[in-house]
Design a protein around this nucleic acid. Structure first.
Length: 461
RNA sequence: GCUCGUAUAGUGUAGUGGCCCAUCAUAAAGGACUCUCAUUCCUUUGACCCGGGUUCAAAUCCCGGUACGAGCACCA
């Protein structure tokens, strides 16, 4: 029983894909189950985005190739967490602490017990009720787990389990939750209790959560539970992207720097899939990286190479002419020609090029040669804007170029992300009946995805 | 500062004491095929952080060093 637990403060991004894919893959491999859990217990610092709940479920399914077996939403489970606070106070391994964060920090550093620690169970119950009924305001009190203030690792000393949030000013965005609760669990407590309740047996997560494991293991000890088997992965940086965070992207989108979560410049799942990265390429990529604790920096080329393997066999070939120059063909007889859509996959069929009007477009850059071969058509000699037919067969080693006919092409746009900038290239795109969203290969340019009838978004080359 | 963790070719990764003059992928270079600067195929280059120790035997175990990273939030 595994789980992946994102904060729904935005849709999934590249890094989340690792979490869902690795956990999902282990679940699949060992006939286990995968829980998708929304850890939406912060309404102030990283408030959830109400649309994200649905989007994340769809994106998870897309990434995994199957639906998560169970979906759990932490904000639906608050009463359950309260119940465990009662158990914790009754068992005298939890207490209400009224120190400020700064005050407690000093106790943590000096390894001394805070004064709130010594109170009786009954007094703690009273204080806990004051947290719940609103007597205490945010910052006035917090529930702590009793560990040991002399523990070697400072992170583990009497760590905080629940705090008060101002849910009047910052209501939870889910309508049925809203301002219903003022006391909310922190990640370490919520996650620990929920993992036990759901019967999680294995946790695979980032190594930034290593101390979480240790904190939670101490709590499990108090409850008499057995902590799941845990593995960690290290940080992954993609050289071409640098650092990014969901919160920052959210801000940039709100500021209008990006068109939305699906902006092709963003390393979100929506952005990646929109530029033609396939779910199975992402799966192969993350599975290949595996679960090591090393911090790594990977080039995008690795992901692209996986993507090419996925799409090439079925990517129709299409011509797109950048910086097109009109050329008149002399000496041809055919009104149209038929050429294959894919060089090694005949099943994809063929395309018919209309030459009723003997005008074609080629890229300006190719015009510097005086002898050219129009691919799948014939050899031509170029003189100015006129191309004279020489031969159907190849007569020499002249350069082979892609081209489109005027009748069988439309003006179109190729959108490319380069160094974080969105660049639009105008040109002529071969007329086609390709379904939107299909990955194609623009001959001599690279792979792209048909976003609109006359707009292709570049994937990679 | 305290605590925890990691260290194999350019980049990733396999390898848990002898099958290792170290696997695979990717990148780079060269070549074959090809009516695309694509795909496919072949070849080449290229690595066990440093220093000690244990052992008949160490990439693999231990100690120290160094480098890098993470945690010490009333975020997740």
């Amino acid at each position: 029983m595994l789980r992946f637990a994102p904060n729904p403060n935005g849709p999934l991004s590249f890094g989340h894909a690792r979490g869902i894919i690795i956990n999902g893959e282990y679940a699949r491999e060992y006939d286990g189950e995968l829980i998708l859990r929304f850890d939406d217990t912060d309404t102030t610092v990283k408030p959830p985005l109400v649309e994200a709940y649905d989007i994340i479920q769809h994106e998870s399914e897309w990434l995994l190739g199957f639906k998560p077996h169970r979906v759990v939403i932490a904000s639906d489970r608050i009463e359950e967490y309260y119940r465990h606070v009662d158990l914790m106070i009754d068992g005298d391994f939890g207490y209400v602490c009224q120190c400020s964060a700064e005050e407690f920090r000093e106790f943590r550093v000096s390894k001394t017990n805070c004064p709130c620690r010594k109170y009786e169970v009954n007094y703690n119950k009273q204080l806990w009720n004051k947290m719940l009924d609103g007597t205490f305001k945010p910052g006035d009190a917090v529930v702590r787990v009793k560990t040991d203030m002399t523990l070697k690792n400072p992170a583990l000393r009497d760590w905080p389990a629940l705090r008060i949030q101002d849910t009047i000013s910052n209501p939870h965005p889910r309508e049925n939750i809203g301002s219903k609760y003022r006391v909310w669990p922190l990640l370490d407590f919520q996650s620990a209790v929920e993992d036990h309740l759901q019967g999680v047996t294995h946790i695979i997560r980032g190594k930034d959560l290593m101390d979480s494991t240790r904190k939670q293991t101490l709590l499990y000890g108090h409850f008499g539970w057995e902590y799941p088997e845990t593995m960690y992965w290290g940080r992954v940086k993609v050289h071409e992207w640098g650092g990014f965070s969901t919160s920052q992207m959210r801000k940039d989108i709100e500021d209008g720097k990006f068109s939305g979560w699906a902006d092709p410049r963003l390393p979100t799942i929506a952005g990646l899939s929109g530029t033609g990265i396939q779910a199975s390429a992402l799966r192969n990529f993350w599975i290949e990286l595996g679960v090591t604790q090393k911090d790594i920096a990977v080039p995008l080329a690795t992901l692209y190479s996986h993507n090419i393997k996925v799409i090439d066999d079925n990517a129709p070939r299409v011509a797109f002419i950048r910086d097109p120059v009109e050329i008149k063909l002399e000496g041809i007889n055919e009104a149209n020609i038929t050429i294959p859509t894919h060089p090694n996959n005949a099943e994809i069929g063929s395309r018919v090029i209309d030459l009723g009007n003997p005008i074609v477009y080629i890229e300006r850059e190719d015009l510097q040669h005086s002898a050219l071969r129009l691919k799948e058509f014939g050899d031509f000699d170029i003189d100015g804007k006129v191309a004279t037919f020489v031969s159907k067969k190849r007569t020499d080693k002249r350069k082979i170029i892609h081209w489109v006919s005027q009748n069988s092409s439309d003006s179109a746009e190729l959108e490319i992300v380069k160094d974080g900038e969105l660049i639009s290239i105008e040109g002529r795109l071969e007329s086609h009946q390709i379904k939107l969203g299909t990955s194609v290969q623009l001959e001599r340019i690279g792979y792209g995805i048909v976003a609109e009838k006359n707009k292709v978004i570049f994937t990679h080359n």
